[in-house]
Simulated scan of single mutants.
Amino acid sequence: MRITFVLPTVSMAGGIRVVGIYARELMDMGHTVCIVSPPPRTLSFRQKFRSWRKGDGWPKKQAELRSHLDGGRFDHHILDVWRPVNDADVPDADVVVATWWETAEWVDALSSRKGAKVYFIQHHEVFSYLPIERCQATYRLPMHKIVIAHWLKQIMETEYDDKVVDLVPNSVDKSQFFAPLRGKQETPTVGLLYSSASFKGVDTSFAALRHVRKKIPSLRIVCFGSEYPRSELPLPVGTEFILSPPQDEIRDIYARCDVWVTASTSEGFNLPAMEAMACRTPVVATRIGWPEEAVKTGWNGVLVEVDDVSRLADGVEWVLSQSEEDWKVLSSNAHATVCSSSWEASAAMFEQALRNACRRAARNEIGGNCAV
Rank of each mutant, 00 (worst) to 15 (best):
residue 50 R to F: 05
residue 89 D to A: 13
residue 94 D to R: 05
residue 88 A to Y: 00
residue 76 H to W: 08
residue 59 P to D: 07
residue 77 H to N: 09
residue 103 T to H: 03
residue 46 R to W: 11
residue 101 W to V: 07
residue 80 D to G: 06
residue 74 F to G: 05
residue 100 W to H: 15
residue 64 E to L: 01
residue 71 G to W: 03
residue 85 V to Y: 09
residue 52 W to I: 01
residue 74 F to H: 15
residue 63 A to E: 15
residue 63 A to S: 15
residue 90 V to M: 12
residue 93 A to E: 04
residue 58 W to C: 04
residue 99 T to S: 07
residue 51 S to C: 04
residue 96 V to P: 11
residue 59 P to M: 06
residue 105 E to F: 13
residue 69 L to E: 07
residue 105 E to P: 06
residue 53 R to M: 10
residue 65 L to S: 09
residue 64 E to K: 03
residue 59 P to E: 08
residue 47 Q to P: 05
residue 54 K to A: 08
residue 100 W to G: 05
residue 80 D to K: 15
residue 108 D to C: 13
residue 72 G to T: 01
residue 75 D to Y: 05
residue 83 R to A: 03
residue 78 I to K: 01
residue 96 V to T: 11
residue 91 P to E: 08
residue 81 V to H: 12
residue 54 K to M: 09
residue 70 D to T: 07
residue 84 P to V: 03
residue 58 W to V: 03
residue 60 K to V: 08
residue 92 D to V: 13
residue 69 L to H: 14
residue 90 V to Y: 11
residue 104 A to C: 11
residue 94 D to I: 05
residue 61 K to R: 15
residue 68 H to V: 00
residue 101 W to T: 06
residue 51 S to F: 00
residue 71 G to S: 02
residue 48 K to C: 12
residue 66 R to D: 10
residue 98 A to Q: 10
residue 69 L to V: 06
residue 98 A to N: 09
residue 104 A to Y: 11
residue 88 A to C: 01
residue 101 W to I: 05
residue 68 H to S: 00
residue 56 D to P: 00
residue 106 W to R: 12
residue 94 D to W: 05
residue 107 V to M: 09
residue 64 E to Q: 14
residue 84 P to K: 07
residue 53 R to G: 00
residue 64 E to H: 02
residue 49 F to V: 15
residue 51 S to M: 02
residue 77 H to A: 08
residue 88 A to E: 08
residue 55 G to N: 02
residue 60 K to Q: 15
residue 104 A to W: 08
residue 62 Q to R: 15
residue 63 A to W: 12
residue 74 F to E: 15
residue 52 W to L: 13
residue 75 D to H: 12
residue 101 W to F: 14
residue 54 K to L: 10
residue 53 R to V: 11
residue 94 D to H: 09
residue 103 T to I: 01
residue 53 R to C: 07
residue 55 G to T: 02
residue 99 T to C: 14
residue 64 E to S: 01
residue 61 K to I: 09
residue 59 P to C: 08
residue 61 K to L: 15
residue 89 D to M: 13
residue 55 G to Q: 02
residue 67 S to K: 01
residue 98 A to P: 11
residue 65 L to N: 14
residue 96 V to L: 10
residue 69 L to Q: 06
